[in-house]
Amino acid sequence: MSSGTLLQRFEAGDIRALARIISFVENQEDGYRELLSRLYRKPRHAVRIGLTGPPGAGKSTLVDSASRKMLKAGNDVCVIAVDPSSPFTGGALLGDRVRFKEETQGGRHFFRSMASRGSSGGLSGATDNVALVLDSFGFDFVLIETVGVGQVELDIVNNCDLVAVVLVPESGDAVQTLKAGLTEIADIFVVNKADRSGADRIVTDLTSMLMLRSGQKTHPTVAKNPNIPVISTDAVHETNLDELVNYFDSLIADRKESGEFDVRRRRQVLRKVSRLLQHRFMTETLQRSSSKAEIDRAVDSILAGKDDPYSTADRLFSETNLAPQSC
């Protein structure tokens, strides 16, 4: 084993140290915040691409094939694949690695399976931090594959620069896609398994639907883009994968030029700061203003019809030093 602290070895490009630090951050072990603070100050340049979509869409195969295309172009590429944790036992079966074929040509290749550990937005609560670790390590691309339960997995938008929604001919008609809210998070639609019957239909459907919807509201963190491309691929036979990777590149380039890329990053950072603040504030307020018993009493009063949640919240807030001092 090489010498030095984990961070020193990490900085020297040691894969084992990288893997250890990911666990450290994922497990939120003592000192992880200090470590993240250090990493936030390091130069980074990775682009984060998220892939989401219903089960059976072939996301893993697509991620694997796309990552190898990127590697061959000389990039360092890593993949984070998230699978669900059991809500009952906390255990998880992470099977996405089955699809991963180690690539020896081209840049560095790294794969990490993560369990969602109680988060329901399609990723793990720690995904953002793990992506930061990988970015700091020097990867050019971080590909993030969501759990893929078929409903909208909004976390992906808050963690990625670009979101690809992967569908298959069997995913159903465009209306269902619309209903699921997938059009609001997609930067690109990928119709995978295009060798199957029905592929052409879903591509046409999606395209015409997207044209109709252009100009409508999208998810707040997604910059308005009326022209969401639809591309059909066949990851197993590697059909159209070069095109897909080129699409990624050109979308990123366009957005960097138009400034949309930075707008989205700003929103993500702002959101992260707000969430941390919210969390901090909650803890502080609850600790400072009242003991647990006091809150219980307030809840009792609300239930008894003698108080209401709004007044209770105002009262709790006023007990913090953040409340405006009356003069």
Partner: peptide, 10 residues
């Protein structure tokens, strides 16, 4: 998994 562990199957 049912015993609460994270299992990576390759």
């Amino acid at each position: 998994r049912d015993a609460g562990m994270e299992v990576i199957y390759t």
